[in-house]
């Protein structure tokens, strides 16, 4: 599982029946430097959504059943496991497993430790 910022929504006119009941969200994966920026902050309660820092890492579309919105930081899983929660076979390879409330990120000051 990786963390990412929701930066948008994808709406389909025609879709797979398995997609019913959820939403497709556009996610920008967090890089290591961005983790420190979000640490120790109450992520959900901030009224002003934190601006999504676009990075060079390419964004991806993930399936969401938890109701995440643009600006939220979510944990998403990729690969075959992403289609596990579906009762019928679903062409999904990124699934939002959690909406993050708080990140407590404390890397050691000197890398060797």
């Amino acid at each position: 599982m990786r963390l990412g910022t929701v930066i948008g929504r994808v709406t389909l006119t025609l879709q797979e029946p398995a997609y019913r009941g959820g939403a497709l969200l556009l996610i920008q994966p967090l890089t290591r430097s961005q983790y420190a920026g979000h640490s120790q902050k109450k992520l959900q309660q901030t009224s002003a959504r934190p601006p999504a820092a676009l990075t060079k890492a390419n964004a991806l579309v993930a399936y969401d059943q938890l109701g995440a919105a643009p600006g939220h930081i979510v944990g998403f899983t990729e690969g075959a496991e992403a289609s596990a929660p579906f009762p019928i076979d679903a062409p999904v390879d990124a699934y939002i497993a959690c909406i993050v409330d708080q990140i407590d990120y404390h890397p050691p000051s000197e890398p060797g430790k």
Binding site: L3, L66, C98, I99, V100, H106
Partner: peptide, 13 residues
């Protein structure tokens, strides 16, 4: 390097 907390999550978590 740390932990995260997430109340809205998949039940298996």
């Amino acid at each position: 390097d740390g932990t995260i907390t997430a109340t809205a999550c998949h039940p298996s978590m």
